[in-house]
Design a protein around this nucleic acid. Structure first.
Lengths: 264, 264
DNA sequence: AAATAGAGTTCCAAATAATAGAACAGAATA
DNA sequence: TATTCTGTTCTATTATTTGGAACTCTATTT
């Protein structure tokens, strides 16, 4: 009797799955393991219902429950994600170019894609020091305070950027973090330049240059970036790298066009 | 009218979620993107039903569909998994000990947990060379051909091992890969020794030593291993490392007992 | 030690979502 | 143009999920 197949945000209804994913998100985004009652307080479901939903998630390995009855996210996710990552076409195509860019600059190179209003990091190449890689891969950051995020926005149609920015909550991470107005202004600048800087907007002492990568129909929008400590990456240095990073982005874009071109 | 809440394997029914997870598994385990018809052939659902299920998975970001209508696993999984990994208590507790073991041996150190009949790798520490880390983390390997797997089995009650082995399909990866009989025999040996070797049983040219780690009630069963190329890791060398690796495992076990001890 | 409160689990009729099958549409092929 | 193959939409039927209450177990209070 009700009606709509879409909710107010234009997302289509995903029925039972949608409700379970909300729970999975709640537990996964929590600071630590949650007790049944904690989750109950955040979900507007009756106890019996919530109990069954959590049981199903646990049974499937998406959540785990410890000896104290506290829920945390399950390792099944790791298995699924590692396969997803290993086979990701964008990442596979970009890999050699990222490696080359890392060799050229000696600094950390990231590959990211736009998903909703966040950038999700798909890959990372660091220099000499054996660093924890997983620490970044899979992480998400807001679009408005990362080089890749701003670069990605710069190639979207203005109305899409406006809609996206309108729904955004701007958290001020540093003194340089954008607000809606300054962000929109800078996007215009980036459109002309073809590359974006992150001037310690997310983390004090960290700067980066980024260039956008996109597929023909915008089904994939992302970017590459070179990141490093501000003392080493002066703005002059970053500006010098703008050209090579745009070139890398261009090469990846071209490789994807070919890679995806022949319809099998 | 039917009846059972459990299926033949003792797994409880997870309703709609279970059906969707089967699909997610099918797509995730495939070699490449799958077309609708490919999935239809593997699932015993009617077309209309399958179509809606896939739509829901795509809408939630668990699957993605490309311009050619081919399905592959979605990046939402990466985000969820990276959080799951970052907060994993076992991994956090084990980290310093793994690092120390890596320093001591100079070879690759793995942390794994038993999940069903597979070992899922939770962490990895390599030496000097900046190697792709994600390449192993989240990967799963059969219990019967990994050091960590055999070590883990050795601390399970015999009847659980027997049940697990009975359900296993033994794929012969190398000339040294175990069969059910040789595996059960070796498990007995490992019980006495306290450590397990992988004598090129999974991959030719790769050897390892592993020791089990487990929580009091066996809610967590896993192990640490030191892995490397056979030319460098002679059996003598591996035997020398058996004691330190057992000690590392013991330290992690103790740290977990304390870490999990005080019930908050 | 008994009583009480808190947390989690189980149960079942009612509400809702998923299903099966057929009809429909679009693209590729003959 | 006709035909087949692939994917999408629709609807009555069926199955699952829901919500609320009753129940169990454990910790806390009197």
């Amino acid at each position: 009797m009700s009606a709509a197949k879409e909710n107010e945000l234009g997302r289509r209804d995903t029925g039972t799955l949608g409700k379970l994913m909300v729970l999975l998100d709640v537990v996964t985004h929590a600071d630590g393991p949650m007790r049944f009652t904690d989750i109950l307080a955040l979900s507007d479901q009756p106890r019996g219902t919530l109990h069954r939903q959590l049981s199903h998630l646990v049974e499937e390995g998406l959540l785990e429950i410890d000896a104290d009855g506290r829920y945390s996210s399950g390792l099944r996710l790791l298995d699924l994600a590692s396969r997803s990552w290993a086979r990701n076409e964008f990442r596979l195509i970009a890999e050699p170019h990222l490696r080359a860019l890392q060799d050229l600059t000696g600094e950390t190179v990231h590959l990211g894609v736009l998903r909703g209003s966040s950038i999700i990091y798909l890959d990372k190449f660091e220099g000499q020091q054996p660093v924890r890689m997983y620490s970044q891969i899979g992480n998400t950051s807001p679009v408005y305070c990362t080089g890749v995020g701003k670069a990605a926005l710069s190639i979207l149609p203005r109305e899409r950027v406006a809609a996206l920015v309108a729904d955004l909550a701007f958290h001020q991470f540093t003194a340089n973090t954008h607000t809606a107005d300054t962000l929109l202004a800078e996007i215009e600048e980036i459109r002309k330049q073809g590359h974006a800087f992150d001037r310690e907007e997310h983390e004090v002492g960290i700067r980066c240059v980024a260039a956008p990568i996109w597929s023909e129909n915008l089904s994939l929008v992302g970017g590459v970036s070179v990141t490093g400590p501000a003392y080493r990456l002066t703005m002059e240095r970053l500006s010098e790298w703008a050209a090579p990073i745009r070139k890398t982005a261009e090469q990846i874009r071209e490789a994807m066009r070919i890679g995806l071109g022949p319809r099998r």
